[in-house]
């Protein structure tokens, strides 16, 4: 990418905005708090499972979602289901998310955490 001028930046931002409406993704909180709680292992499980099962879902990383008491935190968005934040997602829970949420479209028990934020 070459150095941009003002107009380039504007154009690029608009393009990116149009593209950024992703509907299917798994997002893992990978800041220090998440990593200390095992977010890397969790991430790796999702990566392996997505490849193994050939799932059409994007795997992403993000920073701290704030609920450090429930790390590792994972946000899952899938068409037809509410976007949920799962907490305390260890390796076993990551497998359950793939099997139950992604494959069977059933939200996993005991791991949903909700955060109320005003914009």
């Amino acid at each position: 990418m070459a150095r941009m001028k003002l107009e380039d930046l504007r154009r690029k931002r608009e393009e990116l905005k149009a593209r950024s409406k992703e509907t299917n993704y798994i997002k893992v909180g990978m800041s220090t708090c998440g990593l200390a709680a095992g977010a890397q292992e969790t991430y790796d499980i999702f990566k392996e499972e997505i490849e193994r099962l050939g799932l059409d879902i994007k795997l992403k990383k993000c920073g701290c979602l704030g609920m450090c008491f429930a790390e590792p935190l994972v946000e899952v968005a899938l068409e037809g289901l509410p976007t949920v934040i799962y907490g305390k997602v260890d390796v076993a829970t990551a497998h359950r998310i793939v099997d139950e949420h992604i494959c069977s479209k059933r939200i996993v028990n005991d791991h949903v955490y909700e955060l109320h934020i005003k914009e």
């Binding site: 609920m67 429930a70 907490g87 305390k88 939200i107 996993v108 028990n109 005991d110 791991h111 949903v112 955490y113 909700e114 955060l115 109320h116």
Partner: peptide
């Protein structure tokens, strides 16, 4: 679903 925490 049994939720872990609904923020309430």
């Amino acid at each position: 679903v049994q939720a872990a925490d609904l923020g309430i």
